[in-house]
């Protein structure tokens, strides 16, 4: 049994929402912890530490990843997008606006992960069918809404993004 914490901090640099961050971190530090604790971006939520609930979803070089399953060091040099970067110049991203308007959230804890997952979906499939929406969202758990408001929000966001 080790009685001393592992030393050996490493400098990790990433670009988050267009801003450069460099912080000293242990190689074991998860991206979710790096974002929350080193960058102060607490919009990325941790619900299960296992990659199941999807609350910690962020985008790394455009791809959606589970930040609770990703070591920060493994994405050094990457471009990361979190929920805090979605709105531009005080204007909500259409997905954010649609989640508000269509009541796609209750407690809001799972919401950031859903927003990034839906943004990714609508970039790939601008007019998804209900089945495509449900399948794309099946890696994100919402315990409050029963998914009805979320479905309505995705349909509404798809329309907003096409006009």
């Amino acid at each position: 049994m080790s009685t001393k914490p592992v030393e050996g901090l490493q400098a990790i640099s990433v670009t988050v929402n267009g801003e450069d961050y460099t912080a000293l971190a242990e190689p074991r530090m998860l991206l979710s912890d790096f974002l929350r604790h080193e960058c102060g971006l607490t919009g990325t939520h941790v619900g299960c530490e296992q990659g199941v609930c999807g609350a910690c979803t962020v985008r790394v070089d455009g791809a959606i990843v589970r930040s609770c399953l990703t070591f920060a060091i493994s994405v050094a040099g990457s471009k990361i997008d979190t929920v805090e970067g979605m709105a531009k110049a005080n204007e909500l991203h259409p997905v954010q606006a649609a989640f508000q308007e269509e009541h796609g959230l209750q407690c809001g804890f799972c919401t950031p992960g859903f927003l990034l997952t839906v943004q990714d979906l609508l970039e790939k499939i601008p007019s998804p069918t209900d089945q495509e929406i449900r399948e794309h969202l099946s890696g994100n758990v919402c315990r409050c809404t029963g998914y009805q408001g979320i479905m309505a929000a995705v349909r509404s966001a798809a329309q907003k993004m096409q006009t």
């Binding site: 929350r36 971006l41 607490t42 919009g43 990325t44 939520h45 941790v46 979190t82 929920v83 805090e84 979605m86 709105a87 909500l92 954010q96 606006a97 989640f99 508000q100 308007e101 009541h103 959230l105 809001g108 804890f109 919401t111 950031p112 927003l115």
Partner: peptide
Amino acid sequence: IRHDGVDKVLGKANFGA
């Protein structure tokens, strides 16, 4: 629209952790 909605979709709502 819910009053707490904006902070929640912006990731600015403060939860327990």
